[in-house]
Simulated assay, not measured.
Amino acid sequence: MLFKWSVLLFLAFISISTVPVMAQSHYTTTEFFVQNGPLQLQVRKITENIYSSRKKIPILLVHGGTGAITSFDLETPDDASFGKALSDAGFAVYLMNIRGWERSTAPAYPLNDTALVAGSCQEAAADIDAVVSYILKDNPGKKINLFGWATGGHWASYYTTLHNEKVSHLIILNSLYGVKSPWIFNQAFADPVDSLKFNNSIPVMRQSDEQAMINIWGTGTNADTTIKADSAVIKSFAKTAVSFNTEHLLKVPGGFRKESFYMANGKKYWDAKDIAVPTLLIRGENDFWSRPIDLETYFNELPAGIVKKKITMPNAGHFLFLDIYGNGRRKLIIAINNFVRKDL
């Protein structure tokens, strides 16, 4: 009998592989993997431990085109970690990587199938549900607060339309909605012959080197102005983004670009009217990914009966959560905190 229980305990341990990453005087950070079928999804949990008796509200952060650690737990001398800043506000912060990002595994996508949407919103929603179910498994009846940035906002919104019963509050930052309107990437992603079709010669897997990741910060005519181009934040961002394989390349499923192209040209993969939870929509005034019409249309199509709020943050850009110099991140955290705790 002792042997049987030992085996069961061992199997339980390897099914959710938990590895402590860091235990500082101020924060406890734990990294583990959640199983979704054959896939392993990387999750990192961050809590502050100075006010350990304070009730911590769970929030799950869903990344966009760059992974969760690169986006939300960046290490710099000035501590640009958005996750740690949220934990200081009293949240139990979970960061997750969708399949194929950073240390999350991915299916063996056929690279020659250029019609494929690798890492579709349906796949992303399944991954989010696996992580949400894991977080809530010891809290029956509880719900998760869900934050999605850029494409992560698309994924989180679609997930919520399927699982309103598991979401407490939905917060979306700098995300597209299915509205036909000019978009900065239309020409780059469109088919050379038919501008209304995605260019299927674009690789199934996106690959970017460190310099390309630095160049992202200069995208558009209204690029982030509060974060200097030679700053430690940008350098750390680029270096971290390409650090998850021996080739030193950001290698991720490219389907999000295809879905984003079609959304920007009016296709809806989900409808805001199907969201039934309190929803906060935020857009940086200078964001290059989303457009003002996305914020307005998304907000207007949310049901009238739910708590809903929209905010445009002046002078803020795409990487608002990393803006530790222009107070963008501080304003973002205040907005999230007020909405989740007080519906304000």
Rank of each mutant, 00 (worst) to 15 (best):
L136R: 00
G148A: 08
K45V: 12
Y27S: 06
W149P: 01
F10M: 11
V340T: 07
E301C: 01
L322R: 05
P77D: 04
Y325N: 10
R291F: 03
V62Y: 01
F198C: 09
E259I: 13
L2T: 11
L302G: 01
D138K: 07
L250G: 01
A89P: 06
F82S: 00
K309M: 13
A335Q: 13
I171M: 06
K84H: 02
I128V: 06
F33L: 05
K251C: 07
D88V: 05
P314C: 03
L146E: 09
D343V: 07
H154A: 11
A115N: 15
I293W: 10
A12Y: 12
I324N: 12
I172M: 03
V340F: 11
M22Y: 14
Y325A: 02
P253I: 06
E259T: 15
I50K: 13
T66W: 00
E296K: 15
T160E: 01
V242L: 05
A241N: 02
Q211K: 15
G83I: 00
P314Q: 15
I69K: 13
L170R: 03
K268M: 10
L39H: 09
E301P: 03
T30Y: 06
T70A: 10
W289L: 13
D274K: 09
Y269W: 04
I128A: 03
D294I: 04
P140Y: 01
I172F: 07
L280P: 00
S71R: 04
K331I: 13
W183V: 03
S6K: 14
L146N: 04
V242P: 00
K267H: 12
G152H: 03
A85G: 07
L41W: 04
S104M: 02
D191W: 06
F198A: 08
Q42K: 09
G141S: 08
I14C: 14
Y269P: 02
N199Q: 01
S6M: 13
L146S: 05
R330E: 15
A223L: 09
A92S: 12
S15N: 15
F91Y: 01
D88F: 00
I16S: 13
I16P: 12
L320P: 00
A12T: 11
S25T: 14
Y325W: 06
G65F: 12
N337E: 14
N327L: 15
K331W: 12
E259P: 05
N338S: 12
F244I: 07
A92G: 07
L302T: 03
I144T: 02
S231D: 11
R103L: 15
S236E: 11
Y269L: 05
H63G: 02
V179R: 05
Y134I: 03
L146T: 09
S120I: 03
E31S: 10
